[in-house]
Amino acid sequence: MNRMIIVAALALATVLPAAAQDKMQLRIGTEGAYPPFNYFDSAGNLVGFDIDIAKALCDEMNAECTFVTQDWDGIIPALLANKFDAIIASMSMTPARDEIVDFTDKYYNTPPAIAVPKDSSLADASPESMADIILGAQSSTTHANYAEKFFPDTELRRYGTPEEYKLDLQSGRIDAAIDDSTVLSTWVNSEDGACCKILEVLKNDPIIHGPGAGIAVREEDTELKEKFNTAIAAIRANGVYKQINDKHFDIDVYGD
């Protein structure tokens, strides 16, 4: 049986020689379900801030990049399982993740926020007002961790994708949702998110959120990490970063 599996794997799996070709070949893992950072537009193209940043970094590193989409809750295991070489998907550099993967310098940092239906009776996002409500978050995110720590009396539901908590917030199955402030404000300002509004923008917690969003690579790929760091510094310096930022947002998402 084991032999059969290996034979089948060899026959069907993509076999990629590690030997470098002329241009560095990189597979970038992203989620493709996290607008406005990385998502599919209606024509089926992968777009968003993360994607533009990734393309700019690849240009800077003279690398040929292909994108692989992967569900969020399996994205680190997939990196470890070598389904791609780096994660560029708005991943917060938390201490827990840092134990398993290696992070580059940050490429942006925005605070979390809470969204509620427009007719919600919630006055604010204090732990007292949030007690006894049902709060939705994407699983394996800093936002879920934040909710656990700061809203201990709130029932937390965890979803595989933001799409799922949005559907449930719309139907009223959950009373509020927590996610990145940019993600939620883009959503409530679109036709899709007309049901809902931002209740409050929260403060980053340094222990939970770490220094912001970075690019994750496998721990042994230190060379790749250094290349990314050099490239991030370069696009910050040469104005490409600002160009991409202004294309997507009217605020500066890099933070201080």
Partner: peptide, 29 residues
């Protein structure tokens, strides 16, 4: 998740070839 990691771990001793188990192949297995 598991088989991919196991294969990667086993192969890391013998070769630098990467074998990836796609979602399709995982489904077939």
């Amino acid at each position: 998740y598991g088989l991919s990691m196991a294969i990667r771990w086993v192969l890391s001793f013998v070769t630098s070839v990467h074998i990836e188990i796609s979602a399709f192949l995982a489904g077939v297995i």
